[in-house]
């Protein structure tokens, strides 16, 4: 009986110590995960900044004009046309059904009147 009591006591002490040690271990784990989270958030923010910088209209225009040889459409070169469903004839925007096609004016397009 005495031996059992001593063993029980030892078990309780062991559980108590184990619990304290485990708490510290989990604490370190939490801190490590927090650091990882912070690092990932930092990385996410850096990528957001990078994305925002790279997708700036000014940069896209610069790349398009200087690297890809594109040019801004001149006045009157952008025309909006609309088609009635089932018809191949374009009509004035004011009379058109809500199907819309945007076309950059080029050699395929006749002059406007």
């Amino acid at each position: 009986m005495k031996i059992l009591a001593v063993l029980l006591g030892l078990c309780l002490v062991f559980v108590f110590v184990w619990e304290r040690v485990d708490m510290v271990r989990v604490g370190y784990q939490i801190e490590r995960l927090k650091r990882d989270k912070t690092a990932l958030e930092r990385q996410r923010d850096e990528l957001r900044v990078q994305f925002s910088t790279l997708s700036a209209s000014g940069r896209i225009a610069r790349v398009a004009t200087k690297e890809l040889g594109m040019g801004l459409p001149q006045q009157g070169q952008v025309v909006l046309v609309q088609f009635r469903p089932g018809s191949s004839q374009p009509v004035a925007v004011a009379d058109a059904a809500p199907v819309e096609v945007r076309v950059a004016k080029n050699d395929l397009l006749a002059r406007r009147y």
């Binding site: 952008v78 025309v79 909006l80 609309q82 374009p90 004035a92 397009l109 006749a110 406007r112 009147y113």
Partner: peptide
Amino acid sequence: QVLSYLGVGSQEPVTLAMAL
């Protein structure tokens, strides 16, 4: 440029030289 970007259509009729 802004009207084109916003998709605001011209009120003038437009013809196409060939069917698209």
